[in-house]
């Protein structure tokens, strides 16, 4: 029954940012982890490479079909030169502009770009973040080959540029939110697109639980706090996933019954029903107090 990553640890691992929309309710967004950003980039680079090859074939096909290869070969070459430049510089910008801040790679991994200040993503921010991509991705790739191959006078320039590029390349590893320079300059975040899934509420009583005659006194419900309530909710969720063990449930039910001094056979005979009813009653009691502004974080806190 012990599934190692409980959801609290999952949540603490994620880095979040808070954005205040005009409606005044702060919203949390999960920052995209480096691994998925990298995968998205790799996928996009793959697409770029494929589209470059595709362009060559299409150009050749067009010029061969038109019989232009002899007289107009130069045009094909210049289309190719400009096309490569455009694909390289505009691929990310273009998709992030028309696809609500996602490139194909980002979409595949459920990521998108948003503006850091909570405004709509502007063109300038997109331009800036993608111009910087040049020194983070493309130029380091190109410079390596250039610096070794050419061996000419401008090799020193390549090496020097590569030194600078290294700063940009390693930047995310030093940044606390592992933002790349493009994100800083463009004023953007890359976030995980949130997924909304509403599950069945554990406090909704099953018919079996409703029949059982279990009730608690206010004193019995004043012992545990929100932390224990949430832990119990997790256990009940595991029951739904068939990951809970009957013996474990019995032990938990008994521990609770001992703690709150509940006297009755239910914790031993029908531990699940007992836990469900206790959860609902406990939540009701705590929520009631919450309305009066009294929070009880856990059992150690005295109210």
């Amino acid at each position: 029954m012990r599934r190692k990553p409980s959801y609290q640890s999952e949540e603490s691992k994620q880095r979040t940012v808070s954005i205040l929309p005009p409606e005044g309710v702060p919203l949390q967004f999960v920052l995209a982890p480096v691994s998925s950003r990298f995968s998205a980039l790799a996928f996009d680079l793959l697409l770029i490479t494929i589209s470059m090859y595709l362009m060559v074939f299409v150009l050749i096909a067009i010029f061969v079909a038109g019989g232009l290869l002899k007289s107009g070969g130069g045009y094909a070459l210049s289309f190719w030169i400009i096309g490569i430049f455009l694909i390289r510089q505009c691929y990310f910008f273009f998709f992030e502009m028309i696809w609500q801040g996602s490139t194909p790679g980002k979409r595949l991994l459920g990521l998108r770009v948003i503006a850091r200040d909570g405004r709509p993503l502007g063109l300038q921010g997109l331009i800036a973040r993608n111009l910087m991509r040049d020194i983070e991705v493309f130029i380091p790739l190109g410079l390596f080959s250039q610096a070794f191959q050419m061996g000419n006078e401008s090799a020193w320039l390549s090496w020097m540029a590569m030194g600078w590029c290294l700063i940009a390349l390693t930047f995310p590893f030093f940044h606390p939110q592992s933002m790349r320079i493009g994100d800083i300059v463009g004023g953007t975040f890359v976030i995980v697109i949130p997924k909304a899934e509403l599950e069945v509420d554990k406090a909704r009583q099953t018919t079996l639980a409703r029949k059982a005659q279990i009730s608690f006194t206010p004193e019995q419900l004043a012992i545990y706090g929100e932390y224990e309530l949430e832990t119990l909710a997790q256990i009940l969720r595991k029951v739904d996933e068939d990951k809970a063990d009957a013996d474990d449930l019995r032990i938990i039910a008994r521990t609770i019954a001992d703690k709150i001094r509940y006297e009755g056979h239910e914790p031993l005979s029908t531990p699940l029903v007992f836990l469900q009813i206790f959860y609902a009653a406990q939540r009701k009691a705590l929520e009631q107090k919450l309305i009066w502004g009294q929070r009880k974080a856990n059992k150690h806190q005295r109210s």
Partner: peptide
């Protein structure tokens, strides 16, 4: 501040 009915096994407010 606790209402006496809260001890009965009825649904919490959030439900």
């Amino acid at each position: 501040n606790q209402s006496p009915t809260s001890s009965a096994p009825s649904a919490p407010r959030s439900v």
